[in-house]
Simulated assay, not measured.
Amino acid sequence: MSTRQDWAPKHITPEHAGVQVTTQGLREHLDSIDVKALLERHQALLFRGFGVNEAALAEVMPTLLPERLAYIHGNTPRTKVGENVYTSTEYPPEYAISMHNELSYAPVWPARLLFCCIQPAATGGATPLLDSARWLAELDGGIRDAFSGGLCYRQYLHGGRGFGKSWQATFETDDRAEVEELLAPTGAEWEWTTSNALRTRHVRPSTILHPVTGAELWFNQADQWHPATLGEETMGELASIVPADQLPQSVTFADGSPIPDEFVREVRDQGLALAVDVDWQRGDVLLIDNLAVAHGRRAFAGSRRVLVAMSH
Rank of each mutant, 00 (worst) to 15 (best):
residue 195 S to Q: 15
residue 276 V to E: 12
residue 114 L to V: 15
residue 205 P to V: 11
residue 267 V to H: 10
residue 71 Y to C: 02
residue 137 A to K: 08
residue 185 P to A: 04
residue 56 A to I: 01
residue 259 I to T: 07
residue 235 M to R: 10
residue 55 A to L: 07
residue 181 E to H: 02
residue 101 N to L: 03
residue 147 F to D: 00
residue 115 F to V: 11
residue 36 K to C: 04
residue 131 D to H: 03
residue 47 F to W: 13
residue 132 S to Y: 03
residue 30 L to H: 02
residue 249 Q to I: 00
residue 164 G to F: 00
residue 222 A to D: 10
residue 45 L to I: 02
residue 300 F to D: 12
residue 310 M to S: 01
residue 70 A to K: 05
residue 214 G to T: 07
residue 82 G to D: 13
residue 268 R to K: 15
residue 229 T to N: 05
residue 264 V to D: 07
residue 65 L to C: 08
residue 282 R to M: 11
residue 244 A to W: 02
residue 84 N to L: 05
residue 167 W to Q: 09
residue 269 D to A: 12
residue 171 F to I: 07
residue 219 F to Y: 15
residue 48 R to I: 09
residue 148 S to F: 00
residue 103 L to N: 15
residue 18 G to D: 06
residue 223 D to Q: 14
residue 130 L to Q: 06
residue 190 W to M: 05
residue 311 S to E: 06
residue 246 Q to R: 14
residue 177 A to E: 13
residue 172 E to K: 03
residue 152 C to R: 12
residue 186 T to R: 09
residue 15 E to N: 00
residue 57 L to C: 08
residue 173 T to D: 14
residue 126 A to G: 12
residue 205 P to K: 11
residue 108 V to F: 15
residue 282 R to K: 13
residue 91 Y to A: 01
residue 283 G to N: 00
residue 291 L to F: 13
residue 82 G to P: 03
residue 280 W to I: 12
residue 121 A to Y: 13
residue 272 L to S: 11
residue 16 H to K: 01
residue 200 T to F: 09
residue 66 P to E: 14
residue 239 A to N: 04
residue 148 S to Q: 00
residue 19 V to D: 04
residue 122 A to H: 12
residue 237 E to P: 01
residue 200 T to R: 07
residue 6 D to M: 01
residue 295 H to T: 01
residue 39 L to Y: 08
residue 171 F to Q: 06
residue 75 N to G: 06
residue 308 V to A: 09
residue 69 L to V: 00
residue 277 D to I: 07
residue 49 G to A: 08
residue 188 A to I: 10
residue 55 A to I: 02
residue 294 A to S: 15
residue 125 G to E: 12
residue 248 P to M: 06
residue 161 R to D: 13
residue 247 L to A: 14
residue 179 V to F: 10
residue 309 A to W: 08
residue 193 T to M: 02
residue 77 P to F: 08
residue 267 V to A: 13
residue 131 D to S: 11
residue 240 S to D: 15
residue 251 V to D: 11
residue 312 H to D: 14
residue 127 T to Y: 01
residue 291 L to W: 12
residue 174 D to C: 04
residue 28 E to I: 04
residue 117 C to W: 07
residue 145 D to N: 03
residue 98 S to H: 14
residue 45 L to R: 02
residue 74 G to Q: 05
residue 259 I to G: 06
residue 56 A to S: 14
residue 161 R to Q: 11
residue 91 Y to V: 13
residue 56 A to Y: 01
residue 135 W to Y: 15
residue 311 S to D: 11
residue 90 E to H: 04
residue 128 P to L: 10
residue 78 R to M: 04
residue 4 R to L: 14
residue 123 T to W: 01
residue 208 I to C: 08
residue 304 R to D: 12
residue 137 A to E: 15
residue 304 R to W: 13
residue 60 V to K: 00
residue 208 I to R: 08
residue 213 T to E: 02
residue 24 Q to T: 11
residue 276 V to R: 11
residue 279 D to Q: 06
residue 297 R to I: 09
residue 163 F to W: 14
residue 121 A to N: 07
residue 14 P to R: 09
residue 52 V to N: 02
residue 158 H to D: 03
residue 14 P to F: 09
residue 84 N to K: 06
residue 227 P to K: 04
residue 261 D to Q: 11
residue 70 A to E: 12
residue 156 Y to C: 02
residue 200 T to K: 00
residue 31 D to W: 02
residue 77 P to D: 05
residue 218 W to C: 08
residue 222 A to G: 12
